[in-house]
Amino acid sequence: MNIFRLLGDLSHLLAIIILLVKIWKTRSCAGISGKSQILFAVVYTSRYLDLINAFISPYNTIMKIVFLAASYGTIYLMYMKFKATYDVNHDTFRIEFLIAPAAVLALIVNHAFEPLEILWTFSIYLESVAILPQLFLVSKTGEAESITSHYLFMLGSYRALYIFNWIYRYYAENHYDLIAIVAGIVQTVLYCDFFYLYITKVLKGKKLQLPA
């Protein structure tokens, strides 16, 4: 464990908590893409199946359970409890166009052709693009509430910090994982445009609004 990875995990955790608290407090999931939340649930489920057969550390196990629970909790709030506030007309991204290529790529480019390994690889590929429906929703409505922006910023920071973690591990621990690194870079790049708007607008107290 190094500082980049710890900070990355903490921003990931913070992002998930921000989202849950926002939905709970405002009793509304307006502006949040349910499609992205479904993709994240698929990502965590396929990646954390190793909870059954691999033990790494109490930290690792607890975080995995928290991510899974929070992810399904968010889906419950969006699709059941506060369904009436869900922006279904704007959340029109076709997630099969992300799931199918991620699945095919996982079958072709992986470390080992074994069920759990392929599911892990699939989850890495899918996570790298899972935020697209959310970014698509923001671009469709042309704006995002500040709290949604904070959520996106924390989620983007998580993968950016992981890149520093991988650089550190490469030199300090002689370890690397090319699949995670390439997918992680793709994932971070997708947030760049948003990072720019966040820093130039949201941090100056303005609403995140896209030019018409």
């Binding site: 190793d50 690792n60 991510f67 470390h111 992981y162 002689n174 370890h175």
Partner: peptide
Amino acid sequence: QPQQHPHDEL
């Protein structure tokens, strides 16, 4: 030579 690491991250 650096090794591929096990899946020990989140």
